[in-house]
Design a protein around this nucleic acid. Structure first.
Ligand code: FES
Ligand code: FES
Lengths: 167, 167
DNA sequence: GGCAATCCTTACTTTTAAGTCAAGATTGCA
DNA sequence: TGCAATCTTGACTTAAAAGTAAGGATTGCC
């Protein structure tokens, strides 16, 4: 289970835009430089995000990118849905081995695991907005830690020790 | 965020072994056939799991694979750790763009997100054993749903409606 | 209108993950 | 002992993701 390059870089680019003052915008070149990636690569990412309606682009000289809505209204789940193309396109549509369809026709013990896992991740991402990430790292970390603790309460035993977070 | 082929197939192979009666074992050919994958591919997966100490192999005729410990003692988190090689090898060790090291030297808003996400997934997987997955799909689904609801209590508002689960 | 800055789009190349192959090693059995 | 069944291992091939390149389209400014 891992975060793809597209997801991570896309998120990072959006975070740059979220830090702008209202009315400001960034060009592809600026975004690329800000993340240390090529302009071509940044272009592809912004194209995806634009197509999905998360950012607004202006063409021509003086053009650039800005968030399409305020950072408070953009949840990480929205972003990941866009950048992770085939997110859960039905379990066993993808990994079917040699056959056309999965061998586990009826009863499958894996399916609920993958589905639930996906929902759990989605639940967590829905609780975080882009705006929250513009804070300092230690504050972001603390907020995230609260979500984890919150999610794990009720079934909880052992929450991993807080990392950078002072209780 | 997605589950890799190795993770899924590996988990499925292990699940076959978990369904065996004590003392029984399966050969590579049987495992491969059971999942609809090639024997070569199954061999590679079992090799990984064997190296990690999750399964025990016997060589020679009458050989085969069995779980190294009881299915009740194997948590999904153990399995995923083995099959997902470079799981979280430090944020920004992998995606460094064009530079050698990440541009976000000090303060980073993304890092806590990735770390927390990883911990949340891990928390969920630690609560599920292989043995639980040998039940019928609807029972597994119900058990998993309980974990999700449990995790989301406290911060919760909107839990996605139960799917196959009757309340 | 013309030019420069910028975004848009498609096709291509590179890199990485996934899967295959073939030769070797170990065991059980006759 | 010799053979057949099985796992082991590393190198190889193929498929998918990531990243690049190049030309087209739109806008603002003079
Ligand atoms: S339906 Fe294919 S493994 Fe679950
Ligand atoms: S340290 Fe590189 S993006 Fe966070």
């Amino acid at each position: 289970m891992k975060v793809s390059a597209q997801e991570e870089y896309g998120l990072r680019c959006l975070l740059q835009l979220a830090r702008l003052s209202p009315g400001e915008s960034l060009t592809l070149g600026q975004i690329a430089e800000g993340e240390g990636i090529s302009q071509a690569n940044a272009g592809k990412l912004m194209w995806l995000l634009n197509k999905a309606g998360l950012v607004a682009s202006t063409r021509g000289t003086k053009g650039g990118y800005a968030l399409a809505r305020s950072a408070e209204e953009i949840h990480l789940s929205d972003i990941i849905k866009v950048l992770d193309e085939d997110m859960l396109e039905g379990h066993c549509k993808s990994y079917t081995g040699l056959q056309e369809i999965c061998v586990h026709t009826g009863d499958c013990g894996i399916r609920p695991v993958l589905i639930s896992l996906h929902e759990i991740v989605q639940s967590a991402l829905e609780r975080i907005t882009l705006a929250q990430l513009t804070d300092t790292e230690s504050n972001v970390d603390q907020a995230l830690y609260q979500i984890h603790v919150g999610m794990s309460r009720g079934v909880a035993r052992d929450i991993p020790s807080p990392k950078h977070v002072r209780s």
